[in-house]
């Protein structure tokens, strides 16, 4: 069978589908001071996943927490990578208490594209990955 670390090189999704892959990628991102990109990506997935069985109040609190931690500060690594229109949309959802399971989808896509084009290829060339393999 193909060793997991070779699968990690197939696509970002293959990497993020494996706990050890996530751990190594996060260690790399931490070195580059952009681990928030990955945390935000998982927070968006988790938000969408939890919607069905969580109460509205809890979802609002969670949406606010994600917004405050990653989007509100315009100098944050995540906020800098998200388009202004996408940020306004999320801010409006939070302010108007309009909580939708898909409200972070566009922002997640933008961060994912950025990782696919930038940090993920760098990771595959990094010492941390090459040493692991």
């Amino acid at each position: 069978p193909t060793p997991p670390y070779l699968k990690w090189a197939e696509s970002l999704h293959s990497l993020l589908d494996d706990q050890d892959g996530i751990h190594l990628f996060r260690t790399f991102l931490k070195q580059e001071e952009c681990a928030d990109l990955l945390d935000f990506w998982f927070a968006c997935s988790g938000f969408r996943k939890q919607e069905a069985n969580e109460g509205n109040e809890k979802m609002l609190k969670l949406a606010k927490a994600i917004y405050k931690k990653y989007i509100l500060d315009n100098n944050g690594i995540v906020s800098r990578q998200i388009k202004p229109a996408t940020k306004s949309f999320i801010r409006d959802c939070v302010m108007k208490l309009h909580i939708d399971p898909a409200m972070f989808d566009q922002a997640q896509t933008e961060i994912q594209t950025m990782m696919e084009e930038n940090t993920y290829p760098l990771f595959l060339k990094s010492d941390i990955y090459l040493e692991y393999t």
Binding site: D17, D18, Q19, G46, K49, K58, A65, I66, K68
Partner: peptide, 21 residues
């Protein structure tokens, strides 16, 4: 009641794949 940070950590963890071992 969970703090916002606790909620966030739980949310991130819930989206990660579980160990297959």
């Amino acid at each position: 009641m969970d703090s916002e940070d606790d909620l966030l950590i739980k949310c991130i963890t819930s989206a990660m794949p579980q160990h297959k071992k």
